[in-house]
């Protein structure tokens, strides 16, 4: 049996009507975010009236961007509960791929459109996430502007100097190796991550003893959540940490700059580059 041209055209017309094209006209979509990284993307690309809600994490002190503080405090927040989403009734829900799967499937069953974002593992994926969020909320041009600005900022910071090995130590002593966004950030600032030097990819738990025997040039300690305390965040203040490699330099790299794939990474690169003057790359 052959479908007639007319039927095909009708099917396509229906499909087109169903999918809300990226730059659809009409009232702006109201978007709710249930994760701090989708919060950041929304704040970057959407006007306040399009933001139905942000995650409560965006208001917590360690993650609060000083420049956005007033705006974030004005916007409503949610705690990632399905009930809150039903009450908000947004056109679109954006969140991390690691959100509670039972909440997401419940929301989808209730007919909500839920879009999830994977944590970015490279700068290219950061650009892709910005682009995708722009398309979802009908701001593709704004997204391209942001990406262009981000790339220009990165280019301005890259100076081809070599600055040595960076040990970025996260809560629980997780240290990034190759194939991570952290490694690309380090590379943009002229560093090799400790994990790359040790020859592993992804994140790995390094014991305090292994860290003491490694010899990084610069150490960035995770510094979110010193108060209220927890054992794992306090562990980073173990007296031996201060004596890694007989006193390598420490850099103040707030976690909020590196936790998400967003243009906040630019400031992270700038701080890393400033922390050590570096030597010009040989052969250039």
């Amino acid at each position: 049996m052959r479908l007639s041209r007319l039927t095909l055209a009708a099917v396509f017309a229906c499909l087109a009507a169903l999918s809300p094209g990226p730059a659809a006209a009409g009232p702006p979509v109201r978007v709710a975010s249930m994760n701090q990284c989708t919060d950041q993307l929304l704040l970057l690309l959407a006007p306040d009236e399009a933001i139905a809600s942000l995650s409560f994490v965006s208001r917590q002190r360690p993650w609060l961007d000083p420049a956005q503080q007033a705006r974030i405090k004005r916007l409503p927040v949610n705690h990632g509960a399905a009930e809150e989403m039903v009450r908000l009734n947004p056109d679109l829900i954006v969140t991390s791929a690691f959100s509670d799967p039972s909440t997401l499937s419940l929301l989808r069953r209730l007919g909500y459109r839920v879009e999830t974002f994977e944590p970015e593992t490279s700068l290219e994926e950061v650009r892709a996430s910005i682009r995708r969020m722009g398309a979802l909320i009908g701001a593709p041009i704004r997204a391209e502007d942001v990406i262009r600005e981000f790339d220009a900022g990165l280019d301005a910071l890259r100076d081809g100097r070599r600055r040595g090995v960076l040990a970025e130590i996260g809560v629980g002593f997780w240290v990034p190796g190759s194939g991570t966004l952290s490694a690309e950030i380090a590379e943009a600032a002229g560093y090799l991550t400790l994990g790359e030097k040790l020859g592993y990819s992804g994140y790995r738990y390094l014991s305090l003893e292994e860290l003491l025997l490694s010899a990084p040039d610069l150490i960035a300690l995770s510094n979110a959540w010193s108060t209220p305390p927890s054992l794992s965040t306090n562990a980073l203040q173990h007296p031996a940490v201060g004596r890694i490699a007989g006193g390598a330099a420490f850099v103040d790299l707030p976690d909020r700059l590196t936790i998400c794939g967003s243009p906040a990474l630019l400031e992270a690169v700038a701080r890393l580059a400033r922390a050590r003057p570096g030597t010009p790359e040989s052969g250039q």
């Binding site: 003893e209 292994e210 003491l212 025997l213 173990h238 031996a240 004596r243 890694i244 007989g246």
Partner: peptide, 29 residues
């Protein structure tokens, strides 16, 4: 422990009074 300690380094640290990584691992961890 996870890090192999060198006896030589430890003796050297003990003699010179300068705490190397091995010494810190032994005494502080």
């Amino acid at each position: 422990g996870p890090a192999p300690l060198s006896f030589e380094n430890l003796v050297q640290s003990a003699r010179s009074g300068e705490a190397g990584a091995d010494w810190v691992i032994l005494t502080e961890i």
